[in-house]
């Protein structure tokens, strides 16, 4: 399990951090973001990288679980 806390960061930072975790390859990866824009950008990057993405909304925040 690999956790990326990208809350409070604006794009492209969450995408960059999530991408680094994908390269490391320790799946599943949990990415925490707090804007819809970050959620969508991380989701689309991860899908383009061949990951399966599950999104869980927790109040105003989102958890993205990336698996391969």
């Amino acid at each position: 399990m690999n956790i990326v806390d990208a809350r409070g960061l604006s794009c492209p930072q969450p995408v960059i951090l999530a991408q680094k975790a994908i390269v490391k390859g320790e799946f599943p990866i949990e990415v925490y973001v707090d804007t819809v824009t970050s959620r969508e950008n991380v989701r689309r990057m991860a899908e383009k990288q061949g990951c399966k993405v599950e999104i869980v909304q927790q109040d105003d925040e989102f958890k993205l679980v990336l698996t391969r």
Binding site: C11, P12, V15, I16, A18, Q19, K20, T37, E40, N41, R44, M45, K48, Q49
Partner: peptide, 30 residues
């Protein structure tokens, strides 16, 4: 390093269906 602005993902989603990439062109280059 995937340092793309959000609009890039919007463009890829919106126009991707009309674009055919040769197999050797990586996701980042696309």
């Amino acid at each position: 390093e995937w340092c793309f602005p959000g609009g890039g993902f919007d463009n890829a989603e919106h126009f991707g269906a009309y674009v055919k990439f040769a197999a050797e062109i990586s996701q980042e280059r696309q």
